[in-house]
Simulated scan of single mutants.
Amino acid sequence: MHIRVQNCNNVWASNLIIRAPGDSPNTDGFHVTHSQNVFITNNIIGTGDDCISIVSGSKNIRATDIICGPGHGISIGSLGQDKSEAQVNRATLKGSTNGVRIKTWQVN
């Protein structure tokens, strides 16, 4: 992972360029877990894995004006568990294997 945001509150990450070869494994650009109020804006991310991965326990995560590729796209996982929530706006994906993947938990 290039940048891991874990157990954080009020994070702004903007105007960054993150690059790794398209065939490099486990090179997430941003990995966000158990954090809240994280704003990832105006970034160029090209990796061999997810440009952005957002996982369990994360709330009010916003990714805006992202250029992603190469990579696996943007993955939002484990939503619904611990009332997690995330939002992606204005993302351009070029040469990514996926678009935006959303993985959810069934909530009773």
Rank of each mutant, 00 (worst) to 15 (best):
N26R: 15
N9R: 04
T64H: 02
Q106L: 07
S14G: 12
S53H: 11
T33D: 12
R90M: 12
G69C: 06
G29D: 03
C51N: 06
I3M: 06
S56M: 01
D82A: 04
N26T: 09
E85K: 00
I102M: 07
I54S: 08
I66G: 03
K83E: 05
Q6K: 12
S75T: 09
N10S: 07
S58H: 12
G73Y: 07
N26M: 04
S78M: 08
V100D: 03
Q36W: 15
G57L: 07
P25F: 10
P21K: 08
L79S: 04
S96W: 14
A63E: 03
V100K: 03
D65Y: 13
D28N: 06
T27D: 05
H2Q: 12
A91S: 12
F30W: 05
N37R: 02
G99L: 02
I52S: 02
S78C: 11
I61L: 14
G29P: 01
N37H: 11
P70M: 03
N43Y: 09
I45L: 06
N43V: 03
S75M: 04
I17F: 04
V88T: 01
R90A: 15
I40S: 01
S78Q: 15
N7L: 06
T92Q: 06
G73P: 01
T92L: 11
I66Y: 03
H34K: 10
F39A: 06
I17G: 00
G73V: 10
S84Y: 12
N9I: 12
W12H: 13
T92M: 05
H34I: 01
K83C: 09
L16S: 08
P70K: 07
V88L: 05
N7K: 07
L93Y: 11
R19F: 15
S56Y: 06
K83D: 04
V32D: 00
L16T: 00
I67V: 15
H72E: 13
W12P: 00
K103C: 11
P25M: 04
I52D: 00
R19H: 14
P70H: 09
T104F: 15
F30A: 05
A86M: 06
Q87S: 11
I102P: 00
I67G: 05
R101F: 04
K83G: 13
C8Q: 07
S84K: 08
K103E: 14
A13K: 02
I17T: 15
D23S: 09
G80F: 10
N98W: 07
G69V: 09
S35K: 01
C68P: 00
A20D: 06
T47A: 06
N60Q: 15
P70V: 02
K94A: 09
I18C: 00
L79N: 05
G46N: 00
V11E: 05
S53I: 14
S75I: 06
A63K: 02
V100H: 04
I76Q: 05
V100S: 03
V38F: 14
N89E: 05
A20C: 11
A13Y: 01
I52N: 01
G22V: 08
R90E: 08
S84P: 14
N108H: 09
G95M: 12
I66Q: 15
G71E: 02
R101T: 15
V107C: 11
S75D: 13
Q6E: 12
V107E: 08
R101A: 04
C8D: 05
R90H: 13
T92D: 07
F30E: 09
Q36N: 01
G29N: 06
G69M: 09
